Simulated scan of single mutants.
Amino acid sequence: MTVDTGKTVVVFGGSGFLGRYVTQALAKRGHRIVVACRRPDLAYHLQIAGNIGAIMPIQANLRYPWSVERAVKGADHVINLVGILAESGKQSFDSLQAKGARLIAEAARQEGVNMTQISAIGADPSSNSKYARSKAAGEQAVFEARPDAYVLRPSIIFGPEDEFFNRFAGMSRLSPALPLLGGGKTKFQPIYVADVAEAVAKTVDGEVDGGKVYELGGPEVLTFRQMMEEMLRIIDRKRRFVTIPFSLAGTMANYMQYVPGAPLTPDQVKQLQNDNVVSQEAIDDGRSLEAFGIRPATIDAILPTYLVRFRPQGQFTRPTRHAGGLDPENQDGLV
């Protein structure tokens, strides 16, 4: 049984992918956690992560300020994990990632407590991507309310429930080829979800300086194509690649965006045209994962733990000499 620290941490968006790991990291430290989300019933499974009664789901909606203020009441620290990859109805980038972040930050200021804001590498007020602009607006709103706040910008996050490797691994079971937007040259620095959660927990305990923007990336910088090749190797499948120019991808996304659950939006095409890696400036300033003293996990160590189900015979598949990726004689695939 973990010793209770007596500190109460409110986690907005705690029922999501990153949220469950943040809750676990906080619970291990003995903190009391209030999981604020639109549907508390989706967070009940988190209660077993901590001491009895230490984790309490509560209803909160960023469109209703009173619910946010109620959730923050009595908190010692506030964490905002709320974010979306595509807009849907009233769930827009501006309402959640910009105005929502401001609402939470102002509630934290009124309560007299600090907060941690999860943003994203690429957040930029001058970006042509609405997603990136809204993330930047959220950062600005947080610092205006709490100049000593923590802002963390992770690269693409991977883990058992991710929507990246799981999606493409699932696609590889049905399709003989996988798409590479722009030739798959965009660079990423994938980071394990538990490492991000640990960094968040360290901000709650004040183990790093506040008032800064930290950029978080894993130990490897990989292109989109390299990540696909690694995924295919792990699931022991051979698939060709089809290069889709960004111009064509944008046109396709313009039509697909009106289809519920569309796999690609015009805004995502814009995002994919820029590398998503930790900047040299952040490294030089000590605003990277190294500042947290965390040794990041590699995708090679983690992906097999949850992608095994996508192998031809699941966990019983025996790896072959040239498992996954392309045949050595056909390294270029289809174009």
Rank of each mutant, 00 (worst) to 15 (best):
D275G: 07
G217A: 09
Q47D: 09
Q257H: 07
F93Q: 02
L222S: 03
G261S: 03
M228G: 12
D300W: 15
K90H: 09
V151Y: 03
V200T: 14
A60R: 10
I299C: 11
T251D: 05
D285V: 05
A301T: 12
K73Q: 13
I156K: 01
E230Q: 15
A49T: 08
F241C: 01
D209L: 13
Q331K: 13
V196I: 09
V68Y: 07
V11F: 02
M56H: 12
Y131V: 01
G30W: 11
K270Y: 00
D285G: 09
K90S: 11
L62Y: 07
Y306T: 09
A249N: 07
Q189P: 03
D332P: 04
I156A: 00
E111D: 03
D94G: 02
D76T: 05
D124G: 04
G14C: 06
V259Q: 11
Q315M: 15
G210F: 09
G325R: 15
L85M: 09
P304W: 06
S88M: 12
P266K: 04
E161I: 07
K28S: 13
E111Q: 15
I118S: 04
E220L: 09
R153Q: 15
G182C: 01
A86M: 05
T2N: 08
G170Q: 12
D162W: 05
L85W: 00
P312E: 07
C37Q: 13
G53M: 07
Q59E: 15
R102C: 06
E161D: 14
F310G: 06
I48L: 12
L307P: 10
Y64R: 14
S127C: 00
Y258I: 08
E220I: 06
N330Q: 11
V78M: 03
P328S: 07
V208C: 13
G183I: 02
I244W: 04
Q280K: 15
V22R: 08
I118L: 15
A253M: 08
G89K: 02
G6N: 06
A249Q: 03
G333K: 08
G122Y: 00
P176S: 13
V242T: 07
A101R: 12
A141W: 01
A197T: 02
L62P: 04
Q226N: 06
L174W: 14
E229D: 14
L18F: 01
G293E: 13
K7N: 08
L303M: 04
Q257L: 01
D209H: 09
A105F: 13
Q59C: 10
F316Y: 14
Q110G: 15
P304T: 11
P179K: 09
P176G: 14
Y150M: 06
Q47H: 05
N114F: 03
I33L: 12
N80F: 12
G159K: 08
G14S: 09
G286N: 14
A98M: 00
I48S: 15
V68N: 12
N276A: 00
Q313E: 15
G286V: 10
F164S: 13
